[in-house]
Amino acid sequence: MKRLAWLGLLFLLAACSGYTVTTLRLELHTFVPEANRSGSLDVISGTLRFPDDDGDNTFGNDPDGYWLSLTDTRDVLERAEFLARVRLVHQSGGPVNVGLEVHVAPEGDSNIYDGNGDYRVLNDSKSLNPGETAELAPSATLAPGDPAFDLLRGGRFRVGVLLSVTGSGTIQYSLEEATLVLSGKVFGLIPNN
């Protein structure tokens, strides 16, 4: 868990104007140990879930993602953006399909990838033949009215990346980016009346 409340003091020092946009850029991929950000998937069908902080010594099987506890940004948050990028190299075997998804879910959700109570905010996939390389780089911007955006505004949520492979082969993957960008104006906390 990251409690980032101490950023409040920095916000007060650096962002105290009505027009200043305060952006919190969470580079989630940096919470995955560098050694685990790239590797080979030698599977018939398989999935990897990032980050994996369940401590069970098996990497990529943590179903509840990463718990983020930020300050309640209900009156502040104006925009949320997700960016992800994975590089793929098909090394051997038959044709495969690789999918990349980013999910967010309420903090109490024990499986943020099962479609039950969670939101898939990023989704991209590619088919690869042996010897081919590809990059999956989906991005999405959430705005008020989107249920996933409302979840993020509460400030306490889970987030995770799902990399899935269907087919039979060996895929070299490299997770280069998984970033969540939250933007808003701190002066939004001031009541209107």
């Binding site: 920095l10 962002a15 027009y19 200043t20």
Partner: peptide, 12 residues
């Protein structure tokens, strides 16, 4: 004048 944008980048 305060900056138009302030970016906090949180990394591991």
């Amino acid at each position: 004048r305060s900056p138009d944008e302030v970016v906090f980048t949180v990394r591991g």
